[in-house]
Simulated assay, not measured.
Amino acid sequence: MKKDHKPAGPSQRMLRVGELVRHALAALFARDDIEDEALAGAVVTVPEVRMTPDLKIANAYVMPLGGAHAEEIVAALNRHQKFIRGRVAPLIDLKYAPEIRFFVDDTFAEAGRIDALLRSDRVKRDLDDEDTGED
């Protein structure tokens, strides 16, 4: 009996469409077309966009430069979802424009946390013990 299994990660199509949406969002944010006090003067980066398998939803992970007021900026972007979708649709060559949902990108914070752990005295001590051959 043959088992059906799904691939572990996103398909090439999901990745390609995610990149299209990411570039379109970055271009839109660079033009500063969205009128909202929370977004005034904010420089927003879009490190990643993850598409659902049916390509109907784009989960956009964003971070304002410096990380300040990230939650407020994401809330503002989510308030303007329809406007943003309307601006992104002509920039991507798809039959249907995906619904775009915005989330705070926490990968930088997570990387900082891991870096801090690796620099901690406890880890340094453990690494020094390995170097000297002690247990």
Rank of each mutant, 00 (worst) to 15 (best):
G67M: 12
E99H: 13
L25D: 03
A109E: 08
A76D: 06
R119G: 11
A60G: 04
S120L: 04
A97W: 03
A42R: 11
L94K: 01
K82C: 01
V43F: 09
V62S: 03
F83M: 11
G86R: 13
A24S: 09
P90C: 12
A75I: 01
E110H: 07
G66F: 06
F102M: 07
G66S: 06
I34T: 09
L117Q: 10
R113P: 00
A24W: 07
V49S: 01
L94D: 05
L118D: 11
I100N: 09
M63L: 15
V46F: 07
D36F: 06
F83P: 04
R16A: 13
G112A: 07
K124W: 00
A40T: 12
V49P: 06
R31P: 00
I57H: 08
K56G: 14
A42F: 03
D36A: 14
K95E: 15
L20R: 02
V88M: 03
R85Y: 01
I100Q: 06
K56T: 15
V17H: 02
Y96M: 10
I100F: 07
A97H: 04
R13Q: 10
E72F: 00
E110N: 04
V43S: 12
D93A: 07
V123M: 09
R13K: 13
N78H: 09
F29P: 12
I34N: 11
F108E: 11
A40G: 06
A70S: 15
D32E: 15
R119W: 04
F83Y: 14
G67E: 11
A116V: 06
M63A: 12
L39F: 12
K82Y: 04
I84T: 08
A38S: 13
L94A: 03
F29M: 12
P47L: 01
G66E: 08
T52S: 15
S120P: 14
E19L: 02
R22W: 10
Q81D: 02
Y96N: 11
F102D: 01
G41E: 05
I100Y: 10
V104E: 08
G112C: 08
Y96D: 14
I34V: 14
